[in-house]
Write a protein that binds this DNA or RNA. Structure first.
Lengths: 197, 197
DNA sequence: TATTTTTTATTGACTCATCAATCAATATAA
DNA sequence: TTATATTGATTGATGAGTCAATAAAAAATA
């Protein structure tokens, strides 16, 4: 059993520390020392493994994105029909794992940072495209293609909007009501545009 | 004709400069010198009139909020019936004046800053409440009260979501399609819950 | 009106704190 | 004895906030 190097362990710990630090401060204005401290190492080591702060932030965003993606894939696997696919994607975005203060704060902060950092902007674009295509994978079986496109846009906007609004409220975010709201929208649209089968 | 002091002029100029600086940088990471420079004064003067940077940022947020509020009031004045009231509020949020890159960037940045700055958080709460009650002023005439509440929540989330998503795209934001999306949602809900009259 | 006096407007230069990034030095393991 | 892991101490830049000094305008007084 080969003993792995420290690198992957440290990277993971630093990324986790970054998320929790961002979650607590509510913004990317977190020092490398703060992050390193949470991970139990010196700031010099953080620089050693990530080079610059930007890269650590990018890696963190990439991590959040890939977790979300993994969850989405798994959920789609379980889904039996088209409608369940859509519901699955909605559910993933408001799952306990995703819809928690830390992660929400990180999303918001990264959205802002993406305004000046092209690398982050690219990452967020990837996320937007993936969300859209995941939604379409279900919606296109339920209504006309162009209609499905509009509904996907609306659901995506609803999700982002609910995230941002949740960030404003105190206490534990209530995922249930958020899901209910989005599902209600979907239900309404399904009644309106039911594809003849 | 009394010659007014410089204070109101400078304050206005500094707030405008703040908005444009935030718009360009895409975040609140703007120096006082940068802002002061844009307003054609020294950073010392900015401190003289506003004390601290936080206060300038708060004043800027308050300014944006009050402009939006003024527009909303004016639009509601014009509206004849309940439905027009709702449409008016939607229209205001995507008007040329509000739905422009600078203002959108500012909103986004302020949302993030509100996570740590209680004063800004309070301001955003006020905005959220006002938007909700403005929407309700029309919706409650169109459907049952509890249903109206849900629809108002959804419209508010859609608006915030469309703002945040627009920030990601390049080029001039396309307000028309955003309005169409929200209006389509409203239309659908009206068909579904039309109040018997 | 001409003058001093006071208030308002404005800035350059400075201080102080914070932080990202570096590096030489040390410890630990292969 | 070479590669990996780790840090304390340092550097350098940046930027908020202060302050004493000057300019300009307004008010008061002669």
């Amino acid at each position: 059993m080969p003993k792995l190097g420290m690198e992957p362990l440290r990277r993971k710990a630093l990324i986790d520390a970054t998320i929790s630090a961002i979650g607590e401060r509510g913004s990317l204005d977190v020092t490398m020392s703060e992050i390193a401290g949470r991970a139990g190492v010196s700031s010099a080591l953080a620089h050693h493994y990530f080079g610059a702060k930007d890269e650590l932030l990018q890696a963190t965003m990439r991590h959040i994105l890939s977790e979300l993606n993994a969850d989405a894939r798994a959920a789609l696997q379980q889904a039996g029909n088209a409608k369940e696919r859509v519901l699955a994607i909605i559910a993933v975005n408001f799952s306990d794992k995703q819809f928690q203060p830390e992660i929400i704060a990180a999303w918001l902060a990264f959205y802002v940072e993406a305004q000046k950092a092209p690398a982050l902007r690219r990452l967020l674009r990837v996320y937007a495209r993936r969300l859209h295509s995941n939604l379409m994978s279900g919606l296109s079986g339920l209504m006309a293609r162009n209609e499905a496109g509009h509904v996907a846009e609306a659901i995506a906007a609803l999700i982002d909007g609910l995230y941002i609004r949740r960030a404003l409220k105190d206490g534990t975010p209530n995922a249930a009501s958020a899901v209910a709201l989005v599902e209600d929208y979907l239900e309404t649209k399904l009644l309106q545009h039911k594809k003849p089968s």
